[in-house]
């Protein structure tokens, strides 16, 4: 096998891994504050890609503007859903949150399948990121390099914002004891809405980044959701950094298996999940709850 193929697959694995990382990072933030596993996370990923595609298709708005607008739109949609529907299940068993967001997932995905069918829509690279560089051992397409860099920046930016800033301190404190944080004069319900918006915006952003690599397909959210769930089970919900590392590592591992044993590439993450569950049921970075 050629080194080019190997590194190409590894790069693609790294890209997928950064999408897993962004989605599971968003899930972890939302889970921390709302104690809800947001099953609609996959739908928000798909929405990010589709909004970018629609902005171009219907309004002629290009990639760079969509890079900002699409995650923002996803965040707004998410926050509206949080305010109107999801908020109502906070005091119920956590499974109801999962079921409710699963319902929302079905609605969102179902509407797009109904309107656009299940065949993908192409979305072009931005001009400035076409082409690539020959690194000697592999050909590096510029856009793919950009995706890796951009997602790493956003992942670690999110980590920094949560661990090192004042807003992040509010978030961590509210995860522990929301009532007391309110008693200090902080509007926690608003914080929760914003965190939900931020968490789904990460998925939306991953969707925009993914749009030119994969086609924009209404089913893309469902496909990634199960994998991301497996990533979350492997990593546990304990730490932000854990979510990022697990996502990236499993993506790369998946890339590797595509080179050596392509038939099993879909299975490898689930296999890892099973092994981890047998050894460390709470996940690699998780705390037993």
């Amino acid at each position: 096998m050629s080194a080019t193929a190997l590194f190409g697959q590894l790069l693609l694995g790294l890209i997928n891994g950064s999408f897993y990382a962004m989605l599971s990072l968003g899930l972890a933030i939302i889970f921390g504050l709302l104690a809800i596993v947001n099953a609609a996370q996959g739908a928000f990923y798909m929405l990010g890609a589709f909004i970018a595609w629609m902005l171009f298709q219907y309004l002629g708005i290009g990639y760079w503007a969509s890079f900002v607008l699409a995650p923002l739109a996803v965040a707004i949609i998410g926050m509206i859903l949080e305010r109107t529907l999801i908020r109502r299940v906070y005091n119920l068993d956590h499974l109801y949150g999962l079921l409710l967001t699963l319902g929302l997932f079905q609605i969102i995905q179902g509407m797009f399948v109904h309107w656009y069918g299940t065949s993908g829509q192409p979305y072009d690279y931005p001009d400035i990121l076409t082409g690539g560089h020959n690194l000697g051992f592999m050909f590096l397409p510029t856009y793919r390099a950009w995706v890796v860099v951009a997602s790493l920046i956003f992942c670690f930016g999110t980590w920094y914002a949560i661990e090192k800033t004042r807003l992040g301190a509010y978030l961590r404190a509210a995860t522990e004891n929301p009532t007391l944080v309110r008693a200090f004069g902080i509007n926690v319900p608003m914080l929760v809405t914003l965190a939900f918006g931020g968490g789904v915006a990460l998925a939306g952003l991953a969707g925009v980044l993914a749009a030119p690599i994969y086609q924009v397909n209404p089913l893309m959210g469902g496909n990634i959701l199960t994998t991301v769930f497996a990533v979350v089970v492997v990593g546990g919900f304990g730490s932000i950094l854990g979510a990022i590392v697990t996502g990236l590592a499993l993506g790369v591992l998946e890339g590797f298996s595509k080179v050596f044993y392509p038939e099993a590439s879909n299975m490898v993450i689930f296999a890892v999940m099973i092994v981890v569950l047998m050894i460390k049921p709470a996940g690699l970075f998780g705390r037993e709850r």
């Binding site: 079921l99 409710l100 319902g103 929302l104 997932f105 079905q106 609605i107 995905q109 179902g110 109904h114």
Partner: peptide, 9 residues
């Protein structure tokens, strides 16, 4: 799926 989702909600 949309109807199923609405029923869920």
């Amino acid at each position: 799926p949309v109807v199923i989702g609405v029923i869920f909600v």
